[in-house]
Amino acid sequence: MPNTTDFSAKAPPGGNHPKRSTHKRIRRVGLSLLAVILLGVITFLLVPSPIEPAKWIAPTAPSFQEAGPWQENNKLSSAQIVTDAPKSPEFITFDKEGNLYTGDSDGKIYMVPFDAEGNPQEAQVFADTKGTPNGLKFDDNGNLIVADIKRGLLSVNPSGTVEVLADQVDGKPIYLTNELDIAQDGTIYFSDTSTYGRVMFKEMAENKPHGRLLKYDPITKQTTVLLEGLYFANGIALSSEEDFVLVAESYHYQLTRYWLKGPKKGTSDIFADNLAGFPDNITRDEQGHFWVGIFTTRISFVDQMHRSPWLAGTMAKLPESLLSGASAPAKHGLVAELSPQGELIESWQDPEGSLYGVTTAVSHNGYLYIGTAPGGSQGVHRLPLTK
């Protein structure tokens, strides 16, 4: 029987082909989306940046592949865990009995005792600052002096009671108390990292100095500003003779020296520059050597961004949550050991990244103790200082 029904896809005269209509709708939707995206990009580019970046040509980063003290090695790779009770032990110090103390980002300060053979025992909560304790060091009266990011300069007595020593200077807030060291006469030197009040990629992009070096006098209970205009003021350490104090400028890969005695008293200069990463905390050993924790190796994009204020300003428009990954630490553990004159003696590394995000390196009783910050490895580690 002949088929008299036409099931072909032909459109009726004057009508639209179904497939053609679908393609047109898809095309219209695509063009609309593209217009929205282009409009968003144009609007984003036209919106003023929240910062006015300063151009900076950063020095070429040292190479880990070339012979010299920065040459890649695995000296940190053998580090063993001491305690994992604090997840982010920013700084490490010891009391007269040899017990280890460290803080965590949740406000707790832990004490770790050791047995007669030097083996670490279970960590105990010593105090809670209700803030974020970073720098720690005992004074001669047995009080633990604490640089707390959120609360300022604190004193914690042996029973764990917390007292605020300073949270203002010259009638203005101390914005981000970070690290400290204590002189023999009890004077406390500490850093106020930034007027931003917290770590922000926007400040790195701006490339302007907002940090300060401060001094607290325990007799007068007065706080004074010694040095301003620091690029993310961080670690603090006094020299053996206490004729100068060092402060790390993380965002310019350098350590600045402020003279406390001698003909240069009251002036500052660069102690060590062009480090292979962002310097964090500084400690001094019995030989007068300075140990510098390098939180992350250099970030090539950041150095390139500093060359272009337009790029830096554009990046600062993005939400901070999207930028946090850009400044996350590289999985390359790094510590620098410097002479009393600022010369790099050697570097200690873990290029495989089992230990990274290093903030602190403390030489104590034949071991190098390592602290870290959020984004890096967790817990306190140590390794023998045999070479």
Rank of each mutant, 00 (worst) to 15 (best):
M1G: 15
P2Y: 12
T4C: 02
T5S: 11
G14L: 08
R20C: 03
R25W: 11
R25M: 14
G30P: 01
L33W: 07
L38H: 03
L39E: 02
V41E: 02
S49A: 10
S49D: 04
S49G: 05
E52K: 13
K55Y: 04
T60D: 13
E66C: 00
P69W: 01
E72I: 10
K75W: 08
A79G: 04
I81T: 13
T83A: 15
D84Q: 12
D95R: 12
G98F: 10
N99Q: 12
L100Y: 12
G103H: 14
S105Q: 14
D106H: 08
D106G: 02
D106T: 07
K108L: 15
I109E: 04
P113T: 14
F114W: 13
E117Q: 13
G118Q: 10
N119L: 08
Q121E: 11
Q124H: 15
Q124A: 14
Q124N: 12
A127M: 09
G131S: 09
N134C: 10
G135L: 04
G135D: 04
N143I: 09
N143W: 07
L144Q: 06
V146H: 02
D148I: 09
D148E: 07
P158G: 08
S159I: 11
L165E: 05
L165V: 07
Q168N: 14
D170P: 01
G171Y: 13
I182P: 04
I182Y: 06
Q184G: 14
D185E: 06
D185C: 05
I188G: 01
Y189H: 03
Y189D: 06
D192W: 10
S194K: 08
V199L: 14
M204H: 05
G211A: 09
D217K: 12
I219A: 14
I219R: 15
K221T: 13
Q222D: 11
T224H: 05
L226F: 12
Y231A: 05
A233H: 05
G235D: 03
G235H: 06
A237I: 02
E241D: 15
D243T: 14
V247N: 02
A248M: 04
S250C: 07
K265M: 09
K265W: 06
F271M: 07
A276K: 00
D280Y: 02
R284E: 05
G293W: 10
F301T: 13
D303F: 08
Q304K: 15
R307T: 12
R307H: 11
L311S: 06
G313Y: 01
L318Q: 05
E320S: 15
S321L: 09
S324K: 15
S324Y: 14
G325N: 07
A330H: 15
K331I: 05
P340W: 13
Q341C: 00
L344S: 02
L344W: 04
Q349H: 03
D350Y: 11
G353L: 11
S354E: 13
G357P: 03
T359P: 00
H364L: 03
H364I: 06
N365S: 12
L368M: 12
G371T: 03
T372W: 01
V380P: 00
H381Q: 11
K387N: 15
K387H: 14
